[in-house]
């Protein structure tokens, strides 16, 4: 009975904190919009092109995709997650009666919601240039492959983007928590990341970042990818939660 009421109380607190954060952190969504609009503008010129000519005709092909919008959204997700671990944002939690656990869980649920919104808008952001091109370039100059996006295609793209965003959010939250634990990580994390890249590229061999990257990017089964992401995100969020408790003990 006591355990159940504690669980209920935790759920209630998380729910309240989550609702509160949705309203309070709306500025993060505004930054998402600006980031995505910038990415849409970058994408509108095409992400690749090639040309050739024969006779007196020049052929020019421009390739369009939502990749830049998704990459920008992933960067946004990472830094938004890091921001949630900073003191300014953590202090906002004191408005509510709760503890570190409820605060962290509500942050994670908020990040999941933000990832869903970002995934949805990032994929739809790629649709806007398609429509503009139809009217500006004309239908006769559009190759139909991948031009149309059915509801099924849209759902798959949103789901995949959402999973990547969750993963990046978990990584950002984890890195943010490390930095809160010790400011030395502000230097250590980028140094480790870029150091690995530099040394590996100097030796021209695969490196740790490659292996981690390929672990997710080369997964061709959606269900396996889902499991990988959920497991990794759970480990990263769980570790962040433990670090957060340690942070509380230290203070």
């Amino acid at each position: 009975m006591t355990v159940s009421s504690t669980k209920n109380s935790l759920l209630e607190t998380v729910k309240k904190q989550y609702m509160f954060k949705l309203r309070l952190y709306i500025n993060l969504f505004i930054s998402l919009i600006v980031v995505q609009v910038i990415a849409i503008l970058f994408s509108s010129g095409g992400v690749g092109s090639h040309g050739t000519s024969t006779g007196n005709i020049n052929f020019f092909e421009k390739t369009f995709s939502s990749d830049i919008i998704i990459v920008f959204s992933l960067m946004w997700a990472f830094f938004a997650a890091v921001l949630l671990t900073t003191r300014d944002y953590r202090d906002m939690d004191f408005v509510f009666i709760g503890n570190r656990v409820s605060s962290n869980i509500s942050n994670m649920v908020f990040l999941a919601t933000a990832s869903l919104v970002a995934g949805f808008t990032a994929v739809l952001g790629g649709v806007l240039p398609r429509v503009i091109l139809y009217y500006s370039l004309g239908p006769h100059h559009i190759l139909s492959d991948n031009y149309f996006l059915s509801l099924g295609d849209l759902s798959l793209a949103v789901l995949a983007t959402f999973l990547y965003l969750i993963l990046i959010c978990a990584l950002g939250y984890f890195c943010g928590m490390l930095v809160q634990l010790s400011k030395a990580f502000v230097v250590i994390i980028p140094a480790l990341f870029f150091g690995t890249l530099i040394t590996a590229s100097a030796r021209e061999e695969a490196h740790l970042v490659d292996y981690v990257f390929n672990f997710f990017v080369e997964e061709s089964s959606l269900s396996l990818f889902l499991v990988k992401v959920i497991f990794t995100a759970a480990v990263l969020f769980g570790s962040s939660l433990l670090m957060s408790n340690r942070l509380e003990v230290r203070k």
Binding site: G46, V47, N56, I57, N58, F59, F60, E61, K62, T63, F64, S65, S66, D67, I70, V123, G126, R130, L133, L137, H141, I142, L143, D145, N146, Y147, D153, L156, A157, A160, T161, L163, Y164, V217, E218, E219, S220, S221, L222, F225
Partner: peptide, 27 residues
């Protein structure tokens, strides 16, 4: 005399990289 040079521009589209990995075969 040669006719005017003509430009023929086409737009092609790629699926999002997050989806390409789930397409049949390699990304």
């Amino acid at each position: 005399e040669e006719s005017e040079w003509q430009e023929f521009e086409v737009a092609s589209f790629q699926r999002e990289f997050v989806v390409r990995q789930f397409s049949p075969g390699k990304p």
